[in-house]
């Protein structure tokens, strides 16, 4: 041993030429890595509406073709009875649900709150509509929503899960693989946005079931706002442009029917409410093939007009329905 470090000895063994070659290779590797990183780098980030984005899935048109828009209204406190009467007023469930149909009920299960607070679709209504569909010959009734709160808690504590299952329906809770990106052509907001699509795969009829609620941002939450529960992702960003997103939802979803429950309406402190004193007995059930007209009528039950809710006019102007519900010549069921 000459006292030198063995590692230094091996370094000494490299010729100057080889050292330079190795340095050049190392330099090339660093340049290649840098070039690759630069190639991957996107200084603008993902752009909404970018041509590169997938248009994803499209929702079918679930409305009954060749029918004039209809609206049936029944008054009373018993939801099972009033929904039957309002349904009869528009021609009966058989007009819309045929033997062999598979029906999706889009409920509002947004919050894990009790039915008494009317912040969610009432379980009595879910149960009765499920029964009516099965009685008309539907082979399957699926009940779904993508709630704000934990889905299992929401469906359990609202009573919707029990109501649906005890009436022969099947609850489909949202899960990550159930979402697919959707783009509404010409839309400003619904572009490559995750949609709860799995429940739609097997159905050929769609019925929306919504309560009437005051809403801090939009003014009121009714049948059109109910489709908001089909969206996934950080959908709360849409609150900054709430009327546009509701209009786009109304254009995206073409239901067979909507049922607007104004039996007990939330008139203040919505959409969560909390106190029974936020509610008003408005004793009205609305069944309509026109969601815009249904919401326009529903607004009147909580002391508003269609003009107070910009999304109604916007949806009507975009062709989703009519804000002048009188044009539908609503049929009022006789009150018991």
């Amino acid at each position: 041993m000459d006292g030198r470090n063995p590692k230094n000895a091996s370094m000494d063994a490299i010729k100057r030429r080889e050292f330079l070659i190795r340095c050049a290779k190392a330099g090339l590797s660093v340049c290649a890595a840098g070039a690759l990183s630069y190639w991957f780098y996107d200084p603008h980030g993902p752009q909404r509406g970018s041509a590169k984005q997938s248009t994803g899935v499209r929702l079918a048109d679930f409305s009954i073709s060749g029918q004039k828009p209809r609206m049936g209204i029944a008054r009373g406190a018993d939801r099972a009875q009033t929904v039957r009467q309002a349904m009869q007023a528009v021609g009966g469930i058989e007009t819309f649900v045929k033997p062999g149909d598979r029906v999706l009920l889009k409920v509002n299960a947004a919050f894990a709150s009790p039915p008494a607070l009317s912040a969610t679709t009432h379980p009595q209504l879910v149960a009765e509509v499920t029964r009516l569909c099965l009685k008309a010959g539907a082979v399957e009734v699926i009940v779904t929503d993508n709630p704000i709160n934990d889905p299992a808690s929401c469906f359990a504590l609202t009573g919707i899960a029990r109501a649906a299952e005890s009436s022969g329906g099947r609850v489909m809770l949202p899960a990550e693989p159930f979402f697919r990106p959707i783009t509404l052509p010409g839309a400003k907001l619904i572009r490559n946005w995750p949609l709860l699509f799995e429940p739609f795969k097997s159905v050929n009829k769609l019925i929306g079931l919504a309560p009437i609620k005051d809403h801090h941002r939009s003014g009121a939450s009714m049948t059109m706002k109910n489709w908001y529960g089909l969206l996934g992702g950080r959908r709360n960003i849409f609150h900054q442009d709430i009327h546009t997103i509701i209009k786009e939802l109304a254009l995206m979803v073409k239901p067979t029917l909507v049922i607007l429950d104004g039996t007990t309406s939330m008139v203040t402190n919505g959409p969560t409410g909390g106190s029974l004193s936020d509610l008003k007995e408005t004793r009205t059930m609305i069944v309509s093939t026109d969601q815009v007209a249904a919401d326009a009528y529903g607004a009147s039950l909580i002391g508003k007009t269609a003009g107070d809710l910009p999304y109604i006019g916007m949806a009507a102007a975009a062709g989703a329905g009519t804000a002048d519900y009188a044009l539908l010549k609503p049929v009022f069921a006789p009150e018991n």
Binding site: A110, F111, I148, N149, H216, R217, N236, H239, P271
Partner: peptide, 11 residues
């Protein structure tokens, strides 16, 4: 917050 109280979060 809006995951819990939705549209009332702004308040």
């Amino acid at each position: 917050l809006s995951d819990k109280i939705d549209g009332k979060a702004e308040l």
